[in-house]
């Protein structure tokens, strides 16, 4: 870097791909063979990728809402990193849903022009942000569960999904760590932070039931080696949560009963409609426009 020649310093390394998180690309799956392997139902695969993609998209949105409100500037940067990672995963998974479906829908068609009942994310992701303890505990649950799924998906029979999972595993492992460290700091911090974190844990825990309830599509695809049956990851989830909560001096609530599937069937809370109204407002005001 030329120290006294700032313009020169700016000119070097002007490689778009280095700009954070691959924001330069238009098509997240450009150059990748997106044909669906023989024997896999393309509609089921598409629906499954929508589930995982919607989880990432909606969770990312809730993290984006922290922007300019984080408790410290360093945490501002960290939360944006996590939101960017999940947004990147959403783009890949929605694109995969589109290519598997083969009906000409791209990532933005799926993100901006579906209504709430067509979204397949788990309800845990769409709950409105509470305080920082609430967001931290939610992220811990979400990332622990998602990491367990992605880890197993790296051997999916769909090579595109397997590749997306392999890329995402490293990211989500970092998210889980981040949330775990903060849960421990808050749980084992002051009396106030302990109380707030315990309250968040108690409030969020009932939503874990849904995480391990397999949808029919998940079960069918899991049997073929394409997807993961979420009921298989409960043990890993419990082990990780137990370890973190113990260090955080937090009391683990009684196990949540398995939920009758909700988000995976398109049954959502009002806050998701509000979230989508915001997310989709500009895009829907200009139908057919490109950005």
């Amino acid at each position: 870097m030329a120290f006294d020649n700032a313009l020169g310093a700016i000119a070097e390394d002007n490689d778009e791909t280095r700009w954070a998180f691959g924001t330069g690309f238009h098509d997240p799956l450009a150059g990748i063979d997106t044909s669906v392997p023989d024997g896999i139902d393309r509609h089921a695969l598409s629906a499954y990728c929508l589930m995982l993609g919607d989880d990432a998209l909606i969770m990312s949105h809730r993290l984006q809402e922290w922007c300019t409100h984080a408790p410290e500037l360093e945490e501002e940067v960290a939360l944006a990193n996590i939101a960017l990672d999940l947004l990147g995963q959403a783009r890949l998974l929605l694109s995969r849903a589109g290519t598997a479906e083969d009906a000409g829908r791209a990532e933005d068609d799926l993100a901006y022009f579906r209504n709430a009942p067509e979204f397949r994310n788990i309800v845990l992701a769409e709950l409105p942000n509470g305080d920082f303890a609430h967001s931290t505990v939610r992220l811990l649950m979400f990332a622990t569960w998602r990491l367990a799924l992605l880890d197993r998906l790296t051997t999916s029979r769909d090579p595109v999904l397997a590749a997306i999972a392999a890329k995402s595993v490293k990211e989500v492992a970092y998210h889980r760590d981040h949330a775990a460290l903060w849960t421990i700091r808050l749980g084992d911090g002051t009396d106030l932070s302990h109380a707030r974190t315990q309250r968040a844990l108690d409030a969020l825990w009932p939503h874990t039931g849904e995480l391990f309830t397999a949808h029919k599509i998940e079960r069918d695809l899991a049997a073929m080696g394409v997807a993961v049956d979420p009921s298989d990851v409960r043990e890993e989830f419990d082990t990780v949560l137990d370890e973190v909560l113990t260090k955080a001096t937090l009391r683990r609530p009684a196990p949540a009963p398995p939920a009758n599937s909700a988000g995976r069937d398109g049954k959502h809370s009002t806050p998701l409609s509000d979230l989508l109204a915001e997310l989709q407002s500009v895009a829907r005001a200009h139908p057919g426009a490109t950005w």
């Binding site: 933005d108 997310l279 426009a289 950005w291």
Partner: peptide, 18 residues
Amino acid sequence: ITRAPSLRRKAILLAKVQ
């Protein structure tokens, strides 16, 4: 950021504000 009309623009804007 939460209203950006494409996911690519959203990622760019979020990275920029970060």
